[in-house]
Design a protein around this nucleic acid. Sequence first.
DNA 1: CTAAAACCTGACGCTGACGTGAGGGACAAG
DNA 2: CTTGTCCCTCACGTCAGCGTCAGGTTTTAG
Lengths: 127, 127
Amino acid sequence: MRIGELAEKTGVSVRALRYYEEQGLLTADRSGGGQRHYGDSAVERVHLIQALYAAGLSSRTILDLLPCVDAKVNTPESRALLRAERARIDEQIRQLRDARDRLDAVIASSESPTSGCAHVESDALVP
Amino acid sequence: MRIGELAEKTGVSVRALRYYEEQGLLTADRSGGGQRHYGDSAVERVHLIQALYAAGLSSRTILDLLPCVDAKVNTPESRALLRAERARIDEQIRQLRDARDRLDAVIASSESPTSGCAHVESDALVP
DNA sequence: CTAAAACCTGACGCTGACGTGAGGGACAAG
DNA sequence: CTTGTCCCTCACGTCAGCGTCAGGTTTTAG
């Protein structure tokens, strides 16, 4: 498939896909005219990249991780790298939970009738 | 206390504190000469701001949330805002878990002897 | 009173992950 | 052949959250 289709299938912009290639995260065959062509596996690849970006990893770090993912490299160093990034993600999750708990405290106090301006409505949409 | 002391107590740079004020997140009394003076509560305030930043909220969003936190505002809208941001954080946590699980899969396959280059060491530090 | 340390206000710099044209080919349809 | 749609490569623009330097003022220590 060409770049437009991949963009559509993954929900990522064409520009972003070219950027990934620029960063070495994604490769493509080229047609005679120079147009990029991707196999079906590229979809999954892009999803992985997106997941790692969403986890706050930099493209540089992702670049370091991908060879491990591709199972081309399997050294003690690469495994250490994987575990280190996993730990970073865990730390981020902890921070997020902290922020969430703080917000929960605020929510609780704003919904309990201790805030002076108490008026209880039953527009409760609590998911 | 003055800005330097607050910076030290919170672990945030002086520049960052001034930036928070610029964004309306933090207020300070001024001495005759124009220097900022903070009360003790500012420490907690900065920690809250930091936690929300760490959760990926923008200063604009934090600005919208803080009046709720200060319990000056307690309207259905403000509560909805709080819940919405809480939901966003939950979503981020989900994404992080997804990324972590993907890494875990890679780690598992790289540490199991299916990758050809298998050699089992007992440096297992699996937390 | 004086020197050092801390503080002030601009204002420009930086980084990463793209957005957004500009200007010009590629390629299937009719 | 031409029209339309997709694609290409530069290359500059953006935005947030500060870092950093410049030039000047305030506060504190001695």
